[in-house]
Design a protein around this nucleic acid. Structure first.
Lengths: 346, 346
DNA sequence: ATTAGCACTCTTTTTTGTGGAGTGCTAACA
DNA sequence: TGTTAGCACTCCACAAAAAAGAGTGCTAAT
């Protein structure tokens, strides 16, 4: 069977209507709604065909039709027109938050949630590069040493070390020199026992300090669980009756709460690194995301890039009948703003 | 009317039963349950009295009784026996997480949520003292200066500054000296225009760097919105039918999501600083918390102290019929563990 | 090829009825 | 005077039945 122009228009009408109402849509509705004047009977025939082809489905006999994942997919791929949204003031709102990346991202997630009426999730940047760029020990007071580790990409980690023995300024300077000479430029895999041994030998007498420093370095380099995930508007999903089932809600909210599940998602759907100006916006409908708890939702994700090697993900989660047009447009606009902001700050 | 022993026992029985079942409890139930052998008719009379006194209420005519806020309050104040809970392994679980305060607190909230089956909220420490203890500028590379500000209580803030002009090591050292001399020991209110002017004069030619540094200092000192709030087990509240109303859920979850509401709570119910070893554990029943969205919930809070001037709050939110015994016991145990951990790390 | 019409199906909503739980009251009892 | 048994009454919860809608599929006419 072929998917001719008319079938396509009807399918479009069905999906549009369903996006609005959330109710199965019947033939009469379409025959009124659509600009092509066709009787409901004809629509019925076409609908029957569309059902055979797998684009729509009846939740039960003698009910209207709702789109299948396949139907939504077709809609998203071919029929969505870029509804450009009024997101002008986004930029203003964002810029004043720049400076502190985490505050900015928090704000982004809130902004997305309120402007789309869906749930938003923003994962903090993950830094791929794991090279040590700079290490510094500072005496804060007699008892405390502050360790600073800067990684490639200017990621800063710090930790306060409590030292029993008071170190004089000169020893600190020596240790600083020693550490920098030994570790700068090293990659995560390269800080092995041999290197550590060598440092300790040279820093005889201060091995407890060295230990502490190495711990910080270790933490900095293996900060896997360290990246934050910000979520906003999670209660928006309660607005959609088709998700209002207690079990579903629990599943979804748990997913939002538990960051591991989100990293699971990222594992299954790795960031596509395009780098050609588009933001790798992707739409996952229902089961497509491979995350079980999301099988009744859709998800639109985008990837932002702070600089080479520092990427994060932004996602919108809503019901399958989400307003894909609007979400994609919003996200596109937002990503442009973010690019601008990040470009300035590097 | 007087609240004699028998009335008290009946009230206790009613509340205990209600805590278990969540259903209104009738006179017959109590007459069977209770150890004092009284007929249901008598119980009925007593219940009628208790209702007059405001301890219990009928959700509708010819239904059983449920406790009012006043009833719960009496229960919590006088009738709760310290059910000591098996929370042994808490400590082990916690200790391995120490070191990174934020990770620890995250873990604490998760632990509480799973062990109580209610929702947990932990607010990160708020540092009262706002004195500058130490400032350091470091050259990370030709284009980047790292600013470190340490406040009293060893709170560390840092920010990367992009500088156009490459600074030589000597200038950086000078600036460091200048900044520390000028600012160390100052309180938030004391960094005024005069001080700033003076610094700028002395650091002629580097006023853009100074500006950036002062911005960091300013942020560090006014980090009001900066403190984190960790929540866990929010979906637990879905388990209790009396809260399963869509509006209520939305309200409660929104409160959890929006940190401002939690700070609102703290405003209305300020931390009571006892310092005598108890942990200021407090029970807010229903409307007592003064937070509107919490009027159908109860809340048990405690205050932890990392060191002088650094306090945070821990809270458990559940239905009014929460197991107060267990929650208070768990929280007490946990606070002891936390005290130990913080004592070690200072 | 399109459409009007109709019988049929299935869901949703409303109505009706019934059982149970619980109370309040009264009268009897210790 | 406090306690208890008994009973009429109320209200809710639930199920069954009935009615109302919505929508389809098919057939026959255009």
């Amino acid at each position: 069977m072929e998917l001719d122009e008319r079938k396509l228009k009807i399918l479009q009408a069905i999906i549009r209507t369903y996006l609005e109402t959330g109710e199965p849509v019947g033939s009469r509705t379409i025959s009124k709604y659509s600009d092509l004047n066709i009787s409901s009977a004809t629509i019925r025939n076409e609908m029957s065909d569309l059902e055979d082809m797998g684009y729509i489905i009846q939740p039960h006999t003698s009910a209207g039709r709702i789109p299948t994942d396949k139907g939504y997919r077709l809609y998203v791929d071919t029929m969505m027109d870029d509804k450009v949204q009024e997101v002008q003031d986004m930029k203003d709102q964002l810029e004043e938050k720049a400076g502190r990346i985490d505050t900015l991202l928090k704000h982004v997630s809130k902004l997305l949630a309120t402007s789309t009426n869906y749930a938003a999730m923003v994962s903090g940047p993950r830094y791929r590069s794991k090279k040590i760029k700079f290490i510094q020990l500072s005496e804060v007071d007699e008892k405390h040493l502050l360790t600073i580790v800067v990684l490639d990409g200017n990621v800063v980690k710090n930790k306060m070390i409590k030292s029993d023995e008071a170190l004089d300024t000169e020893s600190v300077a020596k240790l600083n020199f020693l550490l920098n000479t030994a570790l700068n430029g090293l990659d995560v895999g390269e800080v092995n026992i041999a290197v550590i041994q060598k440092i300790k030998e040279q820093a005889k007498g201060h091995s407890n300090v060295i230990d502490a420093v190495l711990e910080v370095v270790g933490n900095a380099l293996t900060q896997d669980d360290d990246y934050e995930v910000y979520t906003s508007g999670t209660t928006n999903i309660l607005k959609y009756p088709e998700l209002a089932d207690k079990e579903k809600i629990t599943d979804i909210l748990d997913t939002f709460e538990d960051k591991r599940l989100i990293s699971e998602f990222e594992e299954v759907n790795p960031t596509i690194d395009t780098d050609d100006g588009n933001h790798a916006i992707q739409v996952y409908i229902g089961g497509e995301s491979q995350v079980d708890s999301m099988k009744d939702c859709s998800m639109v994700t985008a990837t932002y890039k702070i600089h080479e090697g520092a990427y994060g993900k932004i996602g919108i989660v809503g019901p399958k009948r989400m307003d894909y047009d609007k979400v994609v447009a919003t996200l596109e606009k937002l990503m442009d703003e973010l690019d601008d902001i990040f470009k300035d700050s590097n």
